[in-house]
């Protein structure tokens, strides 16, 4: 696995530029993911890689195409100092794991080997030997993720038909 590390305020326009929104096929979105801040991302990213970023990750446009593009690239999760709120809820709703952990986001370096336990929120930087604790999701949110996303959880409850 590899770490891709970015700074603060990575907006959804750079995660997936609007010029590519006319084709919402996840594979098409993945092929342009991050291209406006990192030309090599889409061609080098592999299943299980992790994106580490600063504050306010995913700010700007509400486009769900952004977490979809990252998920479709095979990105395992995003670890950030903080997330913009629409990106946060979009990620939960589509079952894409995100972890809010300022300490880990600061300390993890590109090239580090990192493992993540989504159940406990424990992040281990195996290269530096440091362990971090991300803020756990509330039970309500865990329920959405466990059901495989918001629509499935609403169907399971019988409120969506």
């Amino acid at each position: 696995m590899k770490i891709y590390k970015y700074g603060d305020n990575v907006d959804t326009d750079v995660i997936i530029p609007a010029r590519h929104l006319n084709n919402p096929d996840p594979k098409a979105l993945a092929s342009h993911c991050m291209e406006d801040i990192d030309e090599t991302f889409a061609s080098t990213v592999e299943h299980g890689d992790i994106v580490v970023a600063g504050a306010n990750f995913g700010c700007g446009s509400s486009r769900e195409h952004a977490p979809l593009a990252l998920k479709s690239c095979g990105v395992k999760c995003v670890i950030a100092k903080s997330f913009a709120r629409i990106f946060y809820r979009n990620s939960i709703n589509i079952g894409f794991p995100i972890l809010e952990c300022p300490e880990a986001a600061e300390a993890i370096a590109p090239g580090d080997a990192v493992s993540v336990d989504f159940q406990t929120g424990v992040i281990i930087d195996e290269t530096s030997g440091k362990t971090f604790q991300a803020a756990p999701f509330p039970a309500f949110v865990d329920g959405i993720i466990e059901a495989g996303g918001l629509l499935h959880s609403l169907k399971a409850r019988g409120v969506a038909k």
Binding site: G60, E64, I86, G149, L151, V159, A160, K161
Partner: peptide
């Protein structure tokens, strides 16, 4: 499902941007 949905706060409504899955869930329920 557009981030600038917050505009209607000008009228004293609670309005907020969400994503497409929220829109789908909102339409259904």
């Amino acid at each position: 499902a557009d981030s600038h949905t917050c505009t209607y706060g000008a009228l004293g409504a609670f309005s907020t941007g969400v994503g497409s899955t929220d829109m789908a869930a909102g339409m259904a329920t």
